[in-house]
Amino acid sequence: MGYGAEIVTMVQLTLARHTRRKGAQDQRSKLMSDNTENRPQKPKSFQAIILALQNYWARHGCAILQPYDMEVGAGTFHPATTLRSLGTNPWAAAYVQPSRRPTDGRYGENPNRLQHYYQYQVLIKPSPPNLQELYLGSLEAIGINMDLHDIRFVEDDWESPTLGAWGLGWEVWCDGMEVSQFTYFQQVGGHDCHPVSGELTYGLERLAMYVLGVDHVMDMPFNDPDAPIPMTYRDVFKQTEEEYARWNFDVANTEVLLRQFEEAEAHCKVILDEAPVDPKTGKRIIMVHPAYDQCIKASHIFNLLDARGVISVTERQAYIGRVRALSKMCADAFVLTRAGGYSEDAA
C-alpha cells in the first residue's frame, strides 16, 4: 500500500492554488514525477532522517526554510509559523529549528532529555484536506514501515500562553511514542486564523532514535556511521549539554537576565510605536520582525529565569502575560503588512 498517486493529486490541487500566481507550472509537473520513486532506504543517521524530511516536504511543495537565527523554545516561534499563520496569504514552509528548553537539561545523561534539541516544523495554510495522509507519508519517507507499526492520533489541544495562540489536534503516537504534534491553528496572537493553518512538529531526536533503534540519544549516529569520520550525537552535543545545564540551572546571572527581559520588552514596544511610514524612504515599513525578535528574546529569557527557579508561581503568570502582550502586539502589527494580507489599495 502507499499514499502515492492519490496524495500527490490532492496536494497538487492545494498547492496549485498557492503557486498559480507565481506561474510555477513547470515545478508542478516536476512534483508529480518525483513521487514515482520507490520506498526510501531506511536511514542510518540522524542527519539522513532530517534530509529525508527535507526532501519529502520539498517534494510536496513546501518552501524549505532555514532555522531562525535566535534562541527559541520551539519551532512554532519561528516567524515563518507564528507570523505567517496570520492573515489570508497562502503559505507552505518546512524547516529545522534548534529549540531550547533550559529546564529539560540533564547534563546529557538522560537518554532522551536535552536542553537543546531539534524540531522539524511544517506549516501549510490553508490546511489541505489530506494533511493526515501527507503526514503519514512523511513517516514512511523516513523509514517507518506502516505495516508493522501502530500509529495513533491522540487528542492534544495545543495552547501557547506566551504566543496567545491555540489550536486543536493531536499528538501522534508511533507504538506508544509521541513522534509529532499535529495542530490546526485556530488563533494566533489573539487573532482568529482565517484560513486555518495546519502545523506539524516533529521532535527530531526522539523520532530519529526510534527509527534508528537507539536507546540513548548520545549514542545516535549523527552522520553516516560508515563515514571516514563517524560522529555520534555525543561527539557533537554531550559537552554543550553539560555546559548549558550547569549554566542554566546554577550560574546564569539572574539580575542580568531580569534586566534583559525588561529591556527586550521595552524595546519591542518602542519599535512598534514607530510611525508606519519610514521618513527616510517614504515607504510604509512596519518593523514587525525586528519587534518580534524582541518578543522571542523576552520569551527565552523568561525560560532561563524559570530554570533558575527565581520565578514564583504567581509571578510566572504575570511574566507569561507580559510575553503574550508582546506577541499580540506583533500579530496586530503583522496583519497590517503586505505579508499579513494587508493591501494598501484597500486601506
Binding site: 537518554p111 505495516d147 508493522l148 501502530d150 507504538d175 506508544g176 511514542m177
Partner: peptide, 22 residues
C-alpha cells in the same frame, strides 16, 4: 494497539517497551 501486524505485534510491543523505559 489499533491493528494486527504480520509480526504479531512484536515491533509495536518492542516500541512501547522502549517508550516505557524512557
Amino acid at each position: 494497539a489499533n491493528r494486527t501486524t504480520a509480526d504479531e505485534g512484536a515491533t509495536i510491543l518492542a516500541g512501547n517497551e522502549k517508550v516505557l523505559g524512557a
